[in-house]
């Protein structure tokens, strides 16, 4: 049994034009100790998936309209608030994209860190301080003692994201959901944060759901990948086979779009033509059809089902065989 299983998860948001389905029967699973990448363009539903798993969808606009999120044998969607609260930050933690705004600007780091410790395990002040210092050192923050008495605005973006990670680690969670944790940081800091996450994952054995739009990061960090497109899962596979032999035309397009060092300088960058259809204007059938080089009439009529190719590969495409052949 997987540690975390997302099954047929559908999420709707209320907008001024009525309810819009933003996640359509999304499914994947996360085994204990593995790092799963969730990849896709902006607006494809990656973050919404993460928020739905955490029960953090913005209320009252967003709501789960179908499916289950099963963590350690228990469905989180219908779980009572108090039960969910005990899981959040304790067994499933989350870090966010914007370290600049994710910390409370008027509270000292020490207090915010102490809070994530004592929320799940009340302890004496001295013990909490010791644990806080250990956590900050674990994520590579120098002069940890001094940081405890500082405010978020006194820290750089990279340091704040490290603090966020330290807070997420406070209760040694089984699952860490990282929602684009390096997107807002510059490249060198990105590499440092990824290194921190990789080391922590190895040392603690927690499972990581890593959300990103950066395939390079996926290749570096993850063992398996789920590719999402317009609120649906397009393909999932272990990292190496996915990069070597992508099955879904969308995945192929994404991989072809990565510029390569060996390319002739100043050649045009490859792109996938068109844009992701807007939420609320989703076409029937395959949502990638209008951008797909292999699309046929069938693609715009019938929604492709997820097809299991082998033990750990699935793809949702009517024409994946042609894609492989081309």
């Amino acid at each position: 049994m997987p540690l975390l299983a997302v099954e047929e998860l559908s999420v709707a948001f209320d907008t001024e034009d009525g309810a819009v389905t933003v996640l359509d029967r999304v499914g994947f699973h996360l085994e204990a100790g593995e790092t799963l990448g969730l990849v896709g363009e902006s607006g494809c539903g990656k973050s919404v998936t993460a928020l739905a798993v955490m029960g953090l969808l913005p209320k009252p606009a967003g709501r789960v309209i179908g499916g289950r999120v099963v963590f350690a044998g228990q469905d989180l969607i219908d779980a009572p608030a108090e039960q969910l609260r005990r899981i959040r930050g304790n067994r499933i933690s989350m870090i966010f994209q914007e370290p600049m705004t994710a910390l409370n600007p008027v509270q000292r780091i020490g207090r915010q860190l102490a809070e994530s410790i004592t929320l799940h395990e009340p302890a004496a002040t001295a013990a909490v301080t010791r644990r806080s210092l250990a956590l900050l050192e674990q994520v590579g923050i120098p002069a940890a003692e001094q940081r405890l008495s500082e405010y978020p605005h006194q820290l750089s973006g990279g340091m704040r994201q490290r603090v966020m990670i330290a807070m997420a680690l406070a209760s040694s969670p089984d699952v860490l959901i990282a929602d684009e944790p390096t997107t807002a940081l510059d490249v060198t800091i990105q590499a440092q944060i990824l290194e921190v996450l990789r080391t922590l994952q190895r040392d603690t054995g927690m499972a990581v759901l890593f959300i990103t739009h950066d395939l390079g990061v996926i290749a570096e960090l993850c063992s398996r990948v789920v590719v999402m497109y317009a609120g649906r899962v397009a393909e999932q596979a272990p990292v190496e086979p996915l990069f070597r032999a992508p099955r879904h035309p969308y995945t192929r397009g994404l991989l072809a779009s990565i510029p390569r060092l060996q390319d002739e300088p100043k050649t045009h960058l490859t792109t996938i033509p068109g844009t992701v259809p807007a939420i609320g204007e989703l076409p029937p059938g395959c949502r990638f059809a209008n951008r797909c080089p292999l699309a046929q009439a069938l693609c715009s009529e019938r929604t492709p089902m997820l097809e299991t190719l082998d033990a750990n590969r699935t793809v949702a495409c009517h024409r994946w065989r042609e894609a492989v052949a081309s």
Partner: peptide, 14 residues
């Protein structure tokens, strides 16, 4: 609606 409130809830606060 600020993100730090979401952080607090993600930490396990009610």
């Amino acid at each position: 609606a600020a993100e730090y409130v979401r952080t607090a809830i993600a930490k396990g606060m009610n």
